[in-house]
Each structure stands twice: as C-alpha cells, then as structure tokens.
Amino acid sequence: MRALLVVNPAATTTSARTRDVLIHALASEMKLEAVTTEYRGHARDLGRRAAESDDMDLVVALGGDGTVNEVVNGLLHHGPDPDRLPRLAVVPGGSTNVFARALGLPNDAVEATGAILDALRDRTERTIGLGLAAGTPGTDDEAVPARWFTFCAGLGFDASVIGRVEQQRERGKRSTHALYMRQVVRQFLDEPHRRNGPITLTRPGEDPVTDLVLSIICNTSPWTYLGNRPVYASPQASFDTALDVVALSKMSTPAVARYATQLLTSSPERGPRGKHAVTLHDLTDFTLHSKVPLPFQMDGDHLGLRTSVTFTGVRRALRVIV
C-alpha cells in the first residue's frame, strides 16, 4: 500500500516528537511519503496530487479540521468518485478535531494512529457524505469557487465568532475553549442584526424562511465540542444523509440564554428548540441569501464576507478509514 502523510507543523496539540513516532508507526505498515505543509493551501495541493496519481491508495491528514478540509478539497478537486479516489484517514492534531471525533476516532494522536492501523488491517472503512458550498449564480458572489466541507458551515453569527478567534490567534493567543467563549460573548454584545435577521433560506418547492439571524449548516453530529463535551446543534445530522440546518430568528438576551442552555445540555436525541428556532433535516439543495454581507465559515475556517451561498448535500462522496 502506498500512502501520503500530510503533516501540518503548526498543529495545536501535536509535538515534533509525536509526529516522528506517528510517521515511524505508519511507515512500518505501508510505503509512506510524508510531506510537511509550508503554506496555506499546501494540503489542498497535496490532496489534489494524490487524487491525480495512479498508485496512491491512502492519504493521511495529521492536523486539525482546517488541514482535513484542505486535503478533502484537494482529493475532490475533480469531483467525488469514491471508488477511484484514495481513501482518507485522519490523525487529530488540532484544538477541537470535530471531524475525526465524529468518525469515532480517539482524540489522542497516538491512539488514533493505532485505531487507523487496526482499521487498515481489518479493512474497515465507510463512504461518507459531504457538503458543497458555492457562490449563487446571478449574485455578487457568483464567481466564488465551490468548496467542500466535512462537518459544518455557517453564515452570520458563528462565522463572526470564528473571525474574532482567528484575529486573536494572529496576535499570539492560544486557541482554547475559553478564548472561543469570550469571543461568543463579545460578538453577541456587538451583533448588529440580532433583532432583525437579514438572512433568508430558500429551497426548491418550499416557502422561504426569512429574517434569520444565525444559520448553521451541519453535515454530522456533534456540531462541535467544548473540551470533551459534545454539542449537538442538529442531532439528526449524519454522514449518511444530506445537510441539516439550525437557525435562529431572534437573538435577544433571554432567547440567547435559553438556546445556549439547550446547546450545553443537548444530546443525540434533543437539540435547540423553540418558536425562534428553525431546524431542517436532510436537505440536498438550498441557498442562504443575506441583505447585507455577512461573515462565512466552513469547518471552522473564516472565509470572508458573503451575501449569498448555495449549498449541496452530496451523499457517498469520499471513503474514510474508521
């Protein structure tokens, strides 16, 4: 078996010594090429190279959710073809690792490597669905290239929080759950649209859902983690279905307190609910329009401002080792 290991040297929770141990363990079981990323987008380029190779069987991503997203976008550059494309394996190395944990992998890099090697020996894998987001034809965002996401995307409030976190990290702050929570509070206090939502969701054959303040698109559940606590924004979301949406039409202080409590106490059976909560399950095609440019994020990566994004849920897009 020939495999490519894509290593993010800036991975939050993985030391150089741990990386060396993992490389040695993987190389003992396969013909391994290990490449360390050197620039933003490098992991995507490596994934594309692997997809275009005639003899690459596996791509292993060692890093956080951003690294995984880049590798996936490289693998799917020419579109999904799970029977032809190399399989994907993920070794968590970031601060949250939502995708790896949603697949059922341990959050420790060494333990996850052991689980992946066991899965390869046992030939266990699954074919998962992914989300695809693109600029909407006929809008100012028409030229925005399509991009795949593995577990979530968001337009508005949550993307604003991620943008704030990235700014803090650029100033030298560590990516911690406390940092995220502080930025949630600050964004809420500064949020200009919390009483008059600018977002409208449209889908074929259905009435539009209007005046949304917050919109989160989930491809799996949990949506995220607070430490070891899973948070279920869309409990029904699954890698085996299309996309789920959870949205809020009001973000007053009482409403936010209620929904925050519901998220913190959420479970695989019960997520956010109430008259201002909109939950939609298993959507294959829909569009989010905003009256004003809003921050947009995919898999925890802030991608700038958008006024319209079209989403597609693609079942059976990629094979992963589990």
Rank of each mutant, 00 (worst) to 15 (best):
D240Q: 04
A16E: 12
D301E: 14
T127Q: 12
D108W: 10
A134G: 07
L130A: 07
T220K: 01
I162Y: 01
F149P: 02
V320E: 10
A237Q: 09
L117I: 04
Y232R: 12
L120G: 01
N97M: 08
P9H: 15
R273V: 11
D83V: 15
D190W: 08
L22C: 07
P208N: 12
H77N: 07
T202F: 02
T18V: 12
A3W: 14
M30K: 11
M298P: 01
L212S: 04
V213T: 13
R147L: 14
S267N: 06
S308H: 07
A25G: 03
G163H: 11
T200G: 03
S308W: 10
V72Q: 10
F151S: 05
V184W: 02
L46G: 00
T312N: 15
P137H: 05
Q187Y: 06
N219T: 04
N69T: 10
N219C: 15
D108S: 09
N8W: 01
E52V: 15
T176F: 09
V68F: 03
P9S: 12
L283Q: 13
R182L: 15
H193P: 06
L88T: 06
I216C: 15
L130P: 02
L263T: 01
P86R: 03
G94A: 09
L46N: 00
G93Y: 00
S252Y: 06
R101T: 04
Y225A: 10
A11L: 08
T176C: 05
G63F: 06
I23F: 04
A102P: 07
M1W: 06
G304F: 11
A233Y: 07
A237G: 02
V185P: 01
V110C: 09
L46E: 15
K173G: 10
G114Y: 02
V72K: 14
G274N: 11
E70W: 14
V71A: 12
E206M: 02
R126A: 13
E38F: 08
T18L: 03
T67E: 06
G205M: 13
Q183D: 07
G64W: 02
K250V: 13
R121Y: 09
M251Y: 06
P254E: 14
L105H: 03
V320G: 04
Y259F: 04
M298I: 09
A134K: 14
R48D: 03
E111H: 11
G94W: 00
V292G: 12
S53K: 09
P145D: 06
R195G: 11
L120Y: 04
T224P: 10
H24M: 14
L201H: 00
T127H: 06
Q297S: 07
V184S: 11
N196V: 08
R306V: 14
P192T: 13
L22A: 02
P106T: 01
T241I: 07
V35D: 13
D65Q: 01
M181D: 09
S28C: 15
S160G: 11
T310K: 14
F188W: 13
P230V: 06
L212C: 05
L263S: 09
N69G: 12
E206D: 11
L120M: 15
N228Q: 05
